[in-house]
Design a protein around this nucleic acid. Structure first.
Lengths: 335, 335
DNA sequence: CTGTTAGCGCATTCAC
DNA sequence: GTGAATGCGCTAACAG
C-alpha cells in the first residue's frame, strides 16, 4: 500500500540508506542534528513507513504471534481473544488469527500454517490437546488455553473447573435434592468437561455415571428424542426433588429447551445451575445460579506468559506449568 | 521456528537454489524427474518450509488481510469474524486481527498499524466511519462492514436495518398500542441506529423524537436513575397500552433489567421486540420477537468482495457499492 | 533441464 | 557523521 522505500528517502535527503536506517531505529548518535531534522521532515512529508516484511527478514525476527481457537462462535472465545489482543497491542505484537470450527483436522492445518508463517509464538485454544500435532510443538514458544492435555507438555492457562463446580454443587446438595444430574456434551476425554464432572461427583459422592446426562452435539429436539425422554422420565417422578448442573451455557440452553417443551419450569419443578455466566441468566425469572469465569484474564495471562517465554531467550524447554484463573460463584434463585 | 533455508536444501540435493525454488513453486517442467523426486524426498525428510517473509519480500506481494473490529465483545462480532476467517482460509489468505474496543482513537491506530504491516487489503467494522482516517483509505483494497459512512467512499456490507424494523414495528402497530417507543443507545450519528430508528418512525408515523428513549452507554441502574424513571413514568399510566422496540440485544437487556426492577413483566404489562436474535430469546417466557441478522454472511461477503477487488487488479478506485444482507423476522409472544 | 545472478527493502558492520 | 558493501531467504530472468 506504500511505494516509498528507504532508498527514495535517502535520495531525497542526500544521505545514504544506512543513515536513514539509523534514523528509523532511533540511533541518533550517529548523525548530525541537521540530517536528523531533514530526515524527520522528509519522512513525515512523504508518509513513508518502513516495510515490516523487509525488516523482519533483515533482523530475522518477527513480532507476531499466531492464535488458533477451537470455535469462535463459542461465547467463551471472544473475551479470550480480547485479552490476547489487548496484551498484544501493549507488547507491540500483532496477531494472526485462525478458527478451527471444532474440527480437529482443521486445527492441525491451522497450526501448521501458522508455524510456516514464521510467527514468533503460538497461543492455542485446542479442539483436541491430545492430538499428535501438540507433541511437535515446543514449550519455548507456545501456550495453550482452556483445555489441557494429560501429557502436560506445554504451559496451559485454565479456569478453576473442578473446585468451583464442587463448591456450587455442594450448595445444591445442601438443599436436599433426591437426585442431582450432571448434564454435558459428550465428555470425549476433554479436560474441562472431565474436571467439571469430577467436581460434581466429589460433591454428590457419586461413584458411577448413573447421574450423567449427555446432550448430543447439535441437538435437535425434533429429530432426536432420546435426551428428551430421559429428562421426561426423571421429571415425571412426582415424589422426587431433582436438580441439574449444566456443563456450560449452551448445554443449559438445550436443557431448558427440553424442559420447556415438556412444560416443566425450573426452580419450581426442578433446580438448576450452570458453569459459565451470561447476562441473560440474570434476566431469566428466576435468575440462574452459575459460575462466572474470567475468560478475558485467560487470554490476557496467556499472552503475558508467552511474551515472557519468547523474550527470556531460553534454549531448553522449561517444564510445563498450569496456571488456574479463579472463578466467581453467582447465587440466584434457580435452585 | 525453522532453521533450514533454501540453500541447505540445494546443497543437500546438489542442485542450485533456483531449482529448489522452481520445485517449491510447482514449476516441475524445469527439472528432471530425478531431481524432482530427490527434492521431494529431502524436503519431506528435513521438514523444510520456505520462509513466507522472504517470499513476500521477493514477490512483493502479501496474501494477508487486516481486520479491525469495533468491539469483539459485541456478540454481533464473532459470527462476522467467523465468516471472514472461513473465506480467508478458502482463498489462501491469512488474517491479522485487531480490536478497537469501541475507541475511535484506537481504531485509527489499528488501521494505521495494519497498513504499515503491508497487508494486501482491509476489512473494517468501524467505530466511526466518518473519521478522517477513512478518507485516506482506498476503495481498491478495503471493505467496510456494518456501519456505513454518509460519504460512501468505500464498499460496505450492511444488514437490512430500515425495512426490517419498519416491517416488525408495523406488526406492533397493528396490535393497537397507544404508545410505541424506540429504545436505543445514543444515536451518535451511527448509521445502523439511525436506519433502525428511521424504520421505526416510518411504521409509527412519528414525526418528532418524543418516542425515542436513550439508554446511556454502560448503563448502571444504581448510579443513574434517569432512564429508569422515564420508563417508570411511561409504565405507570394505567389505561395505556405501551410497547418498546429495542435497537439491539444489549439495549433490550438494559430495558428488561429496568422493567424488572420496577416489577413489570413484558407481554403482560407492555409489549417488546428487538433487533438481533440470540438463543436465550427463545428461552425466555414468553419468547421474544426479534429480527435475526446473518452476521456470518456479512463477514463472508466482505471477504468475497475484498478478494474480487484485490485480484482484479484495478487501477482506479471503483465507485463504492453498498450490499445489503437480508434479515429474518422471528415472531414470538412478547407483544 | 540446470546454474548464475541480480534484486526485494532493510539492518549492520567496517571503512573513510 | 557518513557511505559502500554485504546478507537476510527467496524469486525470476537470463544464460548455458
Amino acid at each position: 500500500m506504500n511505494k516509498f522505500t528507504i532508498k527514495d528517502i535517502a535520495k531525497l535527503a542526500n544521505v545514504s540508506t544506512a543513515t536513514v536506517s539509523y534514523f528509523l531505529n532511533g540511533n541518533y548518535a550517529k548523525m548530525s542534528i541537521n540530517t536528523r531534522r531533514k530526515l524527520a521532515d522528509i519522512i513525515s512529508k512523504t508518509n513513508y513507513v518502513p516495510s515490516t516484511t523487509a525488516r523482519n527478514l533483515a533482523k530475522n525476527e518477527n513480532k507476531t504471534i499466531g492464535v488458533s481457537v477451537a470455535d469462535i462462535t463459542n461465547p467463551f472465545t471472544s473475551p479470550v481473544i480480547s485479552g490476547i489482543s489487548e496484551r498484544c497491542e501493549q507488547y507491540g505484537y500483532k496477531m494472526v488469527f485462525t478458527n478451527s470450527n471444532n474440527d480437529e483436522h482443521r486445527e492441525i492445518e491451522n497450526i501448521n500454517r501458522l508455524r510456516q508463517e514464521e510467527v514468533a509464538g503460538l497461543i492455542i485454544d485446542p479442539v483436541n490437546p491430545e492430538s499428535d500435532i501438540y507433541s511437535q510443538l515446543s514449550n519455548l514458544d507456545t501456550v495453550i488455553v482452556d483445555r489441557q492435555s494429560k501429557r502436560n507438555l506445554i504451559d496451559t492457562i485454565v479456569t478453576d473447573n473442578m473446585q468451583s463446580v464442587e463448591a456450587l454443587t455442594a450448595k445444591m446438595v445442601q438443599k436436599n435434592y433426591d437426585d442431582l444430574y450432571f448434564v454435558s456434551w459428550p465428555l470425549d476425554d476433554i479436560s474441562t468437561r472431565l474436571h467439571r464432572y469430577e467436581g460434581f461427583k466429589r460433591a454428590t459422592h457419586d461413584t458411577d455415571d448413573h447421574h450423567l446426562l449427555i446432550v448430543p452435539y447439535n441437538y435437535d429436539l425434533n429429530t432426536d428424542a432420546s435426551f428428551q425422554s430421559q429428562i421426561a422420565d426423571i421429571l415425571k417422578a412426582p415424589d422426587k426433588k431433582v436438580g441439574f448442573f449444566a456443563m456450560n451455557s449452551r448445554v443449559l440452553q438445550e436443557l431448558l429447551k427440553v424442559t420447556q417443551s415438556l412444560s416443566y419450569a425450573y426452580a419450581t419443578d426442578f433446580g438448576v445451575a450452570t458453569y459459565e455466566e451470561f447476562e441473560w441468566m440474570a434476566l431469566m425469572r428466576p435468575g440462574i445460579s452459575c459460575i462466572r469465569q474470567d475468560s478475558f484474564a485467560i487470554g490476557y495471562s496467556a499472552m503475558e506468559m508467552l511474551k515472557d517465554k519468547l523474550e527470556s531467550k531460553l534454549t531448553s524447554e522449561p517444564k510445563a506449568r498450569v496456571k488456574t484463573i479463579p472463578t466467581k460463584e453467582i447465587i440466584r434463585a434457580s435452585f
